[in-house]
């Protein structure tokens, strides 16, 4: 019963929307009926341009998350194990983290040029901080006794990192990855709206330019699907990577 409630509510809402749009109770220009959006979506899925655009978006997203997330992960570990590094960098991180990354876009453009690298750089910057902060928190919440065990059994350097620091902080790191991917997706789309010829963000911009709102909603559905898929993927990855987090 409970399981059917969300889809039933969704369907009821869509039906109401459809009727309202067709009857003219709401502006069909800004709220086109779901059936029209669905048709547009199907047409989109059949076009080569759409898949090329989706490919561009995914490429930027993946590259940004790999580069920024990777750097955040590494620095998170290092700051977690090295107190001097933590003390030195913590204020800087705290100050830079909340900066709106999009505001830096023109500067990144001047530094890196107008190609893909500047877009990826901004996505990477967005993915960097949640990954860094969560990994750092993950390392810091490792049970002090586990550090003692590691020290007592002579764990140092790479072995310490691989066997204790990495798995000990992994649950938080995966949370960080999830936040990083979500943030990176938002920024990827936003950058594409600003300056890309191809990609889902560019499609949204064009939808506004032409006021083809079905295109807008259809693209938003795709982006929502992307968010859902990436979260689903990360959840499976979490289950796979954290076998010790068995259900109690």
């Amino acid at each position: 019963m409970e399981r059917w409630l969300p889809p039933a509510l969704l369907l009821a809402g869509l039906a109401l929307w459809e009727v309202a749009a067709r009857a003219g109770w709401i502006s069909a220009l800004f709220f086109p009926p779901p059936s029209a959006i669905t048709l547009t979506l199907l047409r989109m899925l059949g076009s080569v341009d759409f898949w090329a655009g989706l490919g561009s978006t995914l490429m930027r997203l993946t590259a940004g998350v790999l580069i920024g997330g990777g750097a955040g992960l590494l620095l998170g570990w290092l700051m977690g194990v090295s107190r001097p590094l933590r003390v030195a960098l913590a204020p800087l991180v705290a100050a830079l983290h909340p900066l709106p990354k999009l505001a830096l876009f023109p500067i990144v453009l001047v530094i890196l040029g107008i190609g893909e690298s500047s877009k990826v750089a901004l996505v990477a910057l967005t993915a960097f901080f949640p990954m860094l902060l969560n990994t750092l928190a993950g390392v810091q919440q490792i049970d002090p006794t586990h550090w003692e065990v590691a020290a007592n059994y002579g764990a140092t350097g790479g072995k310490l990192l691989r066997r204790v620091v990495l798995p000990g902080s992994l649950p938080m790191t995966l949370t960080g990855l999830r936040l990083a991917v979500n943030g990176a997706l938002v920024v990827t789309i936003a950058i594409e709206m600003l300056s890309a010829r191809q990609g889902l963000g560019a499609t949204i911009w064009l939808a506004w330019q032409t006021l083809r709102t079905e295109d807008l909603y259809a693209t938003l559905v795709v982006i929502g699907g992307l968010g859902l898929a990436s979260n689903q993927l990360l959840e499976s990855a979490t289950r796979l990577l954290l076998p010790w987090k068995g259900k109690p």
Binding site: V149, Y153, G154, A155, K159
Partner: peptide, 28 residues
Amino acid sequence: KRRLVFQDHALFPWMTVADNVAFGLEMD
């Protein structure tokens, strides 16, 4: 070589029992 058995077992939750037991050997 001094090895401590901690008051609250302090096994690593992310390693299997065998890996936990082999931890000291691995570090050696």
